[in-house]
């Protein structure tokens, strides 16, 4: 091989695409040919500069949700909707002003499932649309008062920014037959939705942890509030976040 042949293969050599004999011959040529050695060094620097200065990008978090929803719709796998009779009951409950807790729900597992569906549907709807928050603020003292007059309770809103879970905002939502507070917190590119309402409305039941369509949901009822936390965040971190919420609640209660 001549100098020109080696020069033409320098990029391939630098990219680790030359094998065995080819690579060994190139190494020998580089020791003998100053022009190729200089070109090789220049290529090495260019490659390092490109890799250092050009970031690989992270897809926006809305895109991830958008893609997943589009896929589910295209595949005919849609999140289960609350069954009509549940919706009708919910509407009726509002109309006549009775509270959820007085309902005689014969199959409580179905009721819990319906809440799981509602929470998930609401979370996904919020992610895909522009309606993640009614009040967008990282300041708990802005978000909490916003609910005044909109709910018959004042939801606890916390500042976990220092712990890596910044507040994004809050919105009014409707779950389990009543208006509820939905608070959005962030974790890297993930959104965590926290749904809560007074426990005195009555238990809706439901499993403490459930995973549906890639979203994790954690649920508990404290003396004051019933919580549903939902996110596509890993279940370990979501558990950590939930512990922070519980601790903050019990500290606030003292």
């Amino acid at each position: 091989m001549k100098h020109d042949d080696f020069a033409a293969q320098l990029d391939a050599y630098g990219d680790g695409e030359l094998m065995g004999n080819e690579a060994r011959e190139m190494e020998r040529h580089l020791r003998e040919c100053a022009a190729c050695a200089r070109a090789h060094e220049r290529q090495r620097v260019l490659r390092a500069t490109m890799r250092a200065q050009l970031p690989a990008l992270t897809a926006p978090r809305e895109l991830r949700s958008r893609v997943r929803l589009a896929l589910r719709a295209a595949a005919g796998v849609t999140p289960a909707r609350p069954r009509p009779e549940w919706r009708w009951l919910a509407a009726a409950a509002v109309l006549v002003g009775i509270v959820v807790g007085t309902w005689k729900i014969t199959d409580s597992r179905d009721a819990a499932n319906a809440v799981v569906d509602e929470v998930l549907a609401s979370h996904v709807r919020a992610l895909m649309g522009t309606h993640l928050t009614d009040v967008a603020s990282t300041d708990q003292h802005t978000v909490k008062p916003w609910f005044n007059g909109r709910l018959d309770f004042s939801p606890p809103v916390y500042d976990f920014a220092g712990l890596g879970y910044p507040l994004i905002g809050g919105r009014l939502d409707y779950v389990a037959g009543g208006p509820v507070a939905a608070l959005a917190y962030g974790r890297r590119q993930h959104v965590i939705d926290v749904f809560l309402w007074p426990t005195q409305r009555g238990s809706t039941g439901g499993p403490p942890a459930v995973t549906r369509q890639g979203y994790h949901m954690l649920h508990w009822s404290a003396p004051d509030y019933t919580y549903w936390v939902v996110s596509d965040l890993g279940v370990t971190e979501l558990g950590e976040f939930s512990r922070l919420l519980r601790q903050a609640d019990s500290t606030a209660a003292r």
């Binding site: 690989a56 990008l57 992270t58 897809a59 895109l63 893609v67 997943r68 595949a75 890639g214």
Partner: peptide
Amino acid sequence: MEPSQLTRFEAAVLPHLDAAY
């Protein structure tokens, strides 16, 4: 499409969303 097939599909390609973007 079966939900399990969608899950298989998502497992194969969703990890590459950042690369795709």
